[in-house]
Design a protein around this nucleic acid. Structure first.
Ligand SMILES: NC(=O)c1ccc[n+]([C@@H]2O[C@H](COP(=O)([O-])OP(=O)(O)OC[C@H]3O[C@@H](n4cnc5c(N)ncnc54)[C@H](O)[C@@H]3O)[C@@H](O)[C@H]2O)c1
Ligand SMILES: NC(=O)c1ccc[n+]([C@@H]2O[C@H](COP(=O)([O-])OP(=O)(O)OC[C@H]3O[C@@H](n4cnc5c(N)ncnc54)[C@H](O)[C@@H]3O)[C@@H](O)[C@H]2O)c1
Lengths: 208, 208
DNA sequence: GAACAATTGAGAGAAATTTCGCAATTCATC
DNA sequence: GATGAATTGCGAAATTTCTCTCAATTGTTC
């Protein structure tokens, strides 16, 4: 079960490639060159080939890659062969937007339940998308019972570590963190920190 | 006015440091060591010192950094000395969430206007936050007239390049792109691509 | 004011990541 | 079935980023 050792950056790009391949598939393209795919993903073709090299050999020289084969291969590595259930904690501005967004399914993820400290304040998403919003007190049990492996944290900074602890104790394996909080987790748990304020803030450097 | 050459990663972290410093300031802490600040930001202290090294020398050996001085210095480099006006294009799920979020002001950014292809569909944010939502046809003029330098793109992928072109032609200097589209821009324009689907997707690799 | 503890700043070294270069392979054509 | 054009896969080189080390400096204590 030992995952091959793949650089984090490469894993991220594999996710991009996968989406591009999906799009090619929809357009009934059945073969792409590394140049085609790379430019669709916004990277250099050498980079793409090096990235794919971590996964295996899927191309045929002179021709390129079979979209279907490559897509299946990446899906395999990325564990996207089946829909991955996800819980979301914090149904505020951002959390609600994420729930309403329908696009994650296509990427292989489904938000199956949401949790909030005040679920009664939350109206829209439940009805709109069929995602139930529970009280955060039931988070631990839910995650454990449904063996949920991925969680999205969209609570205020002050509550970030708290809900993370619950997730971790209940066996979560990966967290997408939107709060500014620096989350403390065991080695085995992976955290992707998306810090929107910092992303915007860093643009300040480049203007004027 | 040539900016010092600072690695992108460092710029991003400077933004983190700045937020942490702000928090220290609120707590009336007036001196921090590189260890304190680094752990608040979730990085190693050697990394922090190296990052600050790009900016200048602000610490006193044996003591640490003056929160106020350092914060001012970073603000200077990051161009956050004054509130940076920002336009947002695409007031859908995500765009509306960003508008409703009040935290960007504290980071030195203010969404002064939003644009959508169908502004009549958009209700909430305008009234709630006092951010007017205009038709996208007026985007170019608005950006040019108000000399807006930073834009947030939150439209569907298919419209990403289109609105980007308008922004670029009108003199935008930096873009925060939430759409999956790979945006094509001139060298002088900086794009921060926040690809939520890819961030979530890449977690798939790490589970199980 | 000498000894000590704390802590920065910066150069050197290590590690990670990206880019390059090119042999190997495949398909199409003559 | 040989020639040529296209394109992968991979080792090597280049670049970027991170970490380590330690001398230099400051404040504090005796
Ligand atoms: N919305 C944005 O555009 C934006 C931008 C930058 C950063 N962020 C960050 O994303 C996070 C969410 O932002 P938001 O605007 O959606 O905030 P929000 O205040 O609108 O929503 C937070 C939600 O979390 C819930 N909550 C609070 N404590 C909780 C707990 N212990 N357990 C479960 N739920 C709890 C609240 O009831 C609320 O519904 C914040 O950390 C914020 O700093 C958001
Ligand atoms: N919401 C999420 O959680 C989420 C997650 C991942 C990615 N994204 C990406 O973020 C972007 C926005 O997502 P969303 O969920 O808010 O989408 P959305 O469909 O809710 O909103 C898009 C908005 O853009 C407007 N629009 C369309 N074409 C336009 C144009 N040419 N000019 C101006 N406005 C235009 C639409 O009227 C709509 O209001 C999309 O690219 C999406 O793929 C969103």
């Amino acid at each position: 079960m030992e995952k091959i050792d793949i650089p984090k950056r490469t894993v991220y790009r594999l996710s991009l490639y996968q989406r591009c391949l999906q799009k090619f598939l929809e357009q009934s393209v059945d073969t792409v060159s590394s140049d085609d795919l790379a430019s669709a993903a916004g990277v250099k073709s050498t980079q793409l080939r090096k990235d794919l090299g971590y996964v295996g050999q899927f191309g045929t020289r002179g021709l390129g890659y079979s979209v279907e084969t490559l897509s299946a291969a990446i899906s395999g590595v990325m564990g996207l062969s089946m829909l991955q259930p996800v819980v979301l904690i914090g149904v505020g501005n951002l959390g609600a937007a994420l729930i309403r967004y329908g696009g994650f399914r296509k990427e292989g993820f489904e938000i199956i339940a949401a949790f909030d400290a005040e679920p009664s304040n939350v109206k829209g998403p439940t009805e709109e998308m069929g995602v139930p919003v529970h009280h955060v007190s039931s988070l631990g049990d839910y995650v454990a019972e449904h063996a949920v492996r991925v969680g999205i944290v969209a609570v205020p900074e002050s509550a970030g570590q708290e809900v993370t602890n619950i997730l971790v104790e209940s066996g979560i394996q990966a967290i997408l963190n939107f709060s500014p909080a620096v989350l403390n987790v065991p080695e085995a748990v992976v955290v992707n920190h998306v810090d929107l304020a910092a992303e915007l803030g860093s643009l300040g450097f480049f203007v004027n």
